[in-house]
Simulated assay, not measured.
Amino acid sequence: MFQIGYGTTENSPVTFCGTPLDSLERKCETVGYIIDHVEAKVVNPTTGQIVPLGELGEVMIRGFCVMLEYWDDEAKTAETITRDGWYKSGDIGSLDAYGYLKIEGRIKDMIIRGGENIYPAEIEQFLHTHPKIKEAQVVGVKDERMGEEICACIKLVDGEECTPEEIKTFCKNNISHFKIPRYVLFVTSYPLTVTGKIQKNILRDVAEKQLKLK
């Protein structure tokens, strides 16, 4: 039996927690619900407005658990904690009607294409349903007209062959048109940290160089 928890060092450190009696689905797909005496909201990262339940946005926390400040760093504190005490987690997630939180990614990975906020995790989850795709990572690359464009870096199942056009056709009529990758690159590996996490900033640079956008 296990419980799921979520939080940050700045939040001392747990703000969401499940129960041992939660269903397997909730344990696997959410990080639990907000703990007592703590507030949470999900906002549009661009406007700061609260988004409807089930929609993605930046997770923000307020309560006794939020730190006072970063030591001797007023600028970083002002960037992270609002004047009315809301801690900006930098995580992208959604709340359901029961207050359970799903984490979908990091705000620094968000793609802004022509004013639309696009979350790579949504596209990655869809691409993983393609039978030829072993792994997919989505990044934003430079674009003079749109600001950023979507690039899918795809690792195929061993022995499979595929084309960018096949991937784009798979996306059409299944995800929103503005979420369809403009670029599709096939890779054999991803840049990793020493702990095995994918370094999307480096992957973005590699993709831009390969696409000759730099």
Rank of each mutant, 00 (worst) to 15 (best):
G7R: 10
D73H: 04
V206W: 03
K172R: 07
G32L: 12
A40Y: 00
L185T: 10
V139P: 01
I92P: 00
K108I: 13
V59I: 15
K200S: 11
P45V: 06
L213D: 08
D84F: 04
F170A: 12
T19Q: 05
E69C: 13
T193Q: 03
T9Y: 01
Q125L: 06
K197I: 12
Q210A: 13
T9N: 08
L68V: 15
Y70C: 12
Y33T: 12
V42K: 01
P191D: 10
R106C: 10
L101H: 12
V184D: 04
K197A: 06
K197S: 08
D96T: 13
V141R: 03
S189N: 06
C151F: 02
M110K: 00
I198T: 15
A207T: 13
I123K: 08
I150F: 01
E149G: 06
K41N: 14
A40G: 13
E79V: 03
I175Y: 03
Y6N: 00
E79I: 09
T169W: 07
Y70S: 11
R62L: 04
G54M: 08
I202Y: 02
Y100I: 13
K214E: 08
K200D: 10
E144P: 02
E166Y: 08
R26L: 13
K142I: 11
N11P: 00
Q199T: 06
K168I: 13
I4R: 14
I50S: 12
T77M: 06
C153Q: 02
V206S: 07
C65S: 07
G159V: 08
C171N: 09
I50V: 15
K41H: 08
T193S: 07
T195K: 15
T163F: 01
K134N: 13
E208L: 11
N11H: 05
E79M: 05
T163E: 02
Y119N: 09
P131T: 14
G93Q: 01
E55T: 15
R145Y: 02
L56E: 15
E39R: 07
H130N: 13
Y190S: 14
V139L: 06
F2K: 14
A121G: 00
V31I: 12
L101I: 14
G140D: 04
I123Q: 05
N117L: 01
I202E: 11
G18H: 07
V184C: 10
D205H: 02
E160N: 03
E25L: 09
E55A: 14
R204D: 01
I123Y: 03
N201W: 01
L24V: 14
V51W: 01
K214D: 07
Y70D: 11
I175R: 06
K200V: 15
L203W: 03
F2G: 04
E74W: 03
G140P: 02
M60W: 01
